[in-house]
């Protein structure tokens, strides 16, 4: 499998490690009134779609960037790759 890195171009999937659902970027606010319930959902609940899935990949043997990879879990086709920091910034996370 080849992952098209947004900065470095096509790179072998063996250079990457997989973390999981890209929803992990949306870490709840620990000071919220409902933090306990939100953290329960954040830690334990995942969608498991047969089809398009957004997930976090780490370019461990490359530039050590985190990517959000949109992948079809049935065909393994990779539909999009973005730098996770760009995704997080668009969501108002990070600086």
């Amino acid at each position: 499998m080849i992952i098209n890195h947004p900065l470095l171009g096509p790179r072998d999937a063996s250079e990457f490690t997989y973390l999981g659902d890209a929803a992990l970027i949306e870490r709840p606010d620990w000071q919220s009134e409902t933090a306990q319930d939100e953290f329960h959902d954040y830690v334990y609940l995942r969608d498991n779609p047969a089809g398009t899935h957004r997930e976090l990949w780490f370019h461990e043997q490359g530039d050590r960037s985190w990517l959000v990879v949109t992948r079809n879990t049935m065909t393994h086709e990779i539909l999009a790759t973005e730098l996770a920091r760009d995704v997080a910034r668009k969501m108002g996370r990070g600086k």
Partner: peptide
């Protein structure tokens, strides 16, 4: 120029 693994070493 690239970072890569050689014999599992970065």
């Amino acid at each position: 120029f690239s970072r890569t693994a050689i014999h599992h070493v970065g």
